[in-house]
Simulated scan of single mutants.
Amino acid sequence: MHSETDQAEGSEADVLDRARAYAQDIPIDVDLGAVQWTVSHRARRRAGSCRYDSDSGDVTIRLAWDAYREHGWEEITDVIRHELVHAWEFQQFGASGHGERFRNKAEEIDAPRHCSPFSEPRLRLVCTDEDCDWSADRFRASVTVTEPNTRRCGVCGERYRVEHVATGRSWRTAAGYEREREQIGDDW
């Protein structure tokens, strides 16, 4: 039907069917009968996620449709293997993260520890210390974005500024955020 190098083709149902079939071939001890597969149209930075219901033991792997459309099937297979490691951890241990256990299992099945971003960040945090090159991308207006004067650089502890990537506008305070958000308007 499809070759592994196909770019983003097919319906959501086709992609989910393909993901289920692909997961069958991954050598990992996951009860795939307890895994539900869905597509997300809301995800903006994570190409996939894995949720666990501790009461039922069900695991839901959600694949970001925009990531699939951007990167195609081949890269989504990395995401599937990554999320299967989370599913394995949830089913075996009731919790999951990106620690040593995750790293070891990911290495066993050639899964990346982190998946590639599929969209450009809307915002960037940049340290104001000229000797520090720390920066961090953000996709949403969290407290670190809306109230930067209450936070500090992740490396040197200095204050940082927030930049709106598309316009180059920046701010360092909550009032600055409000002002720039209003100025940016529909281009936010």
Rank of each mutant, 00 (worst) to 15 (best):
S3Y: 12
E4I: 14
E4A: 12
T5E: 15
A8N: 06
E9V: 12
G10K: 02
G10Y: 02
G10D: 08
S11C: 01
S11A: 00
S11H: 01
E12V: 14
A13W: 01
D14A: 13
D14S: 00
D14P: 00
R20S: 05
A21T: 12
A21N: 11
Y22T: 10
Y22Q: 07
Q24Y: 02
D25E: 11
D25T: 10
D25S: 12
D25W: 00
I26V: 15
I26C: 04
I28Q: 09
D31Q: 08
D31L: 10
L32F: 06
L32W: 01
V35T: 01
T38E: 11
T38F: 15
T38C: 08
H41P: 00
R42A: 15
A43D: 07
R45C: 02
R46I: 06
A47M: 01
S49N: 09
Y52G: 08
Y52V: 09
S54V: 10
D55V: 12
D55Y: 11
G57S: 09
D58F: 11
V59P: 01
T60Q: 01
T60R: 08
R62Y: 04
L63A: 01
W65E: 04
D66R: 03
A67D: 03
A67W: 06
A67K: 02
Y68A: 05
R69F: 08
E70N: 02
E70M: 11
H71C: 08
H71S: 06
W73S: 01
E74T: 14
E75R: 08
R81I: 02
H82D: 00
H82P: 00
E83C: 05
E89C: 12
E89Q: 15
F90S: 08
Q91W: 11
Q91K: 00
Q92L: 02
Q92W: 12
S96V: 07
G97R: 14
H98W: 05
G99C: 09
E100C: 02
R103A: 07
A106M: 12
E108T: 06
E108Y: 00
D110H: 15
D110I: 02
A111K: 05
H114G: 07
H114S: 15
H114W: 14
C115L: 04
C115I: 15
C115N: 15
P117R: 14
F118Q: 04
S119E: 12
E120K: 09
R122M: 04
R122G: 08
L123N: 04
R124W: 03
R124L: 15
V126F: 04
C127Q: 03
D129S: 15
D129Q: 10
E130Y: 10
D131A: 11
D131T: 13
C132T: 07
C132G: 02
D133S: 13
W134K: 08
S135Q: 09
A136R: 14
R138Q: 14
A141M: 12
V143G: 13
V143Q: 14
T144M: 14
V145E: 05
T146C: 10
E147D: 12
T150G: 03
R151N: 13
G154Y: 10
G157I: 03
G157A: 01
E158L: 03
R161Y: 02
H164V: 01
A166G: 10
T167M: 06
T167L: 01
G168L: 03
R169E: 10
G176I: 04
G176E: 05
R179S: 13
E182W: 07
E182V: 04
Q183C: 08
G185T: 13
D186L: 02
D186W: 04
D187S: 12
W188D: 03
